[in-house]
Design a protein around this nucleic acid. Structure first.
Lengths: 247, 247
DNA sequence: CGCAAAATTGAAAACAATCAAATATGGTGG
DNA sequence: CCACCATATTTGATTGTTTTCAATTTTGCG
């Protein structure tokens, strides 16, 4: 049941449960957190370098990305965010944003005031640990991306990223078997992998020819998990997901 | 007064003070934290992928790095750590290490039990925030490295990393004007920037020819801060250092 | 049906990797 | 203090993945 439209609180809890075990009391507390939702078109800025937000942004539906622009004007996508993620959770303790956050697709966002977060964490110290852990898992993903971009060749790099997206969507119940909704353009994949769009296109073709991916509209299928996992040198340890269903 | 031999507690406090304002009560609490020190030769493993440490490792003297090895056997240095840093602070909440930690130089390390850290944080919630912030600053550095490796060409990439090292050492008082002790070999710089040692060597020569760096033994000098900052597209915002002395 | 965005193709250029040696350096023991 | 050795740096020639540039084709959507 991919794309089931969950409420902001439900998706947040599902995501946290995938990396941390919440008690029902803690779930209750999360459910009472005030969240204000907002819909957004694709390719809209959510926040920008230099901003000093007083709220966090929960992805409820859609994809967003965090990116930086070099002085030469080149864009690097630093992170992808799927439903359940909070791209600017760091802003709780780093008060000036050093990144841009932009929607990739149409999105439903949930905004949570810093003050409400701080109050909740004060009251439930285990939730502090849960959110801290959430930021640490994202840091772990940054580390794996560094290896991916710094030391893997293009073919493995793309394969690796596709494996990651599948597992992260699976963790929040947004996949259908080996198929998932993949809204990123090849140009966006290029920005995420430190490549050019042209080269991404050529690697996609190679992956298709080798039977590692098949695409139809914006549906991406990874028909042979073992093969693509091997091609991408993919080991899901770094995602620190509790229950690992990689079937 | 570079290389002044500070105690483990002193260097930890100095580092935290560079990104967070500690009260004297909090400093007192940190001073009473049990830390067991250990000396280590260069190029020794401190921890490895898969480990489940029950302690954190504070760098007191020397340089260490965090790295990952690809399936092809290529190494990517993910992070550098200088005195005051705690490379595996994440292990407080991510119980299985997804990285290797290795000494670059001879080091003095301080080990702090997780249980002592948890107890301290429970007692002083602002210290939880301080350590959380410390992990977030390191995550911010990962993000900048992603931009550096993904989108900057070799010349800028090296320049950027050298700027970062200077500022990070300055934050803990380990620089002499524009000069600092730079113990990394060119091969290690290559692993940190996703390049080959040969190419690092050629970029170093270009930087020397352009008057952006000068090296003598393992002393590195950046004679013209403005020029190298520009060459490396370096903006220190991402370091989130409180008092910024970039003279 | 029409249009803008995205994907695809081909050819040429460039940055960086690779391979293989040669030179220099720093630390050690005699 | 010097010779020696392992390590690190440097050099040159070649190869190769990836980028760049410039179309062309396809797709999705109103």
């Amino acid at each position: 049941m991919a794309q089931a439209p969950l409420s902001p609180h439900q998706i947040m809890i599902r995501k946290l449960q995938s990396i941390f075990t919440l008690t029902s009391e803690e779930e209750q507390a999360l459910l009472s957190l005030p969240i204000q939702t907002k819909d957004l078109e694709a390719n809209q800025d959510i926040a920008r370098v230099g901003d000093q937000p007083n709220q966090c942004c929960l992805i409820v539906e859609g994809f967003t990305c965090v990116h930086k622009i070099s002085a030469e004007g080149k864009r690097q996508i630093i992170a992808l965010h799927v439903p359940g993620d909070i791209p600017d959770l760091q802003s709780l303790h780093l008060h000036v944003l050093d990144i841009n956050i932009t929607s990739i697709t149409r999105c439903k966002l949930g905004f949570i005031k810093h003050s409400d977060m701080h109050q909740l964490c004060e009251q439930y110290p285990r939730l502090t640990a849960a959110f801290w852990r959430e930021t640490l898992v994202h840091a772990s993903i940054f580390r794996e991306w560094l290896l991916n971009i710094g030391r893997r060749e293009a073919y493995a790099r793309i394969a690796h990223l596709l494996c990651e997206i599948l597992l992260r969507l699976k963790a929040v119940g947004l996949t259908e078997e080996k198929t998932f909704h993949m809204p990123m353009t090849q140009a966006e994949m290029a920005d995420a992998t430190g490549m050019t769009p042209v080269h991404v296109n050529r690697v996609y073709q190679a992956l298709r020819a080798d039977g590692l991916i098949s695409t139809e509209k914006s549906q991406m299928t990874l028909p042979d998990w073992n093969k693509i996992q091997q091609a991408g040198e993919f080991d899901p340890l770094y995602l620190h997901i509790k229950k690992q269903a990689t079937s």
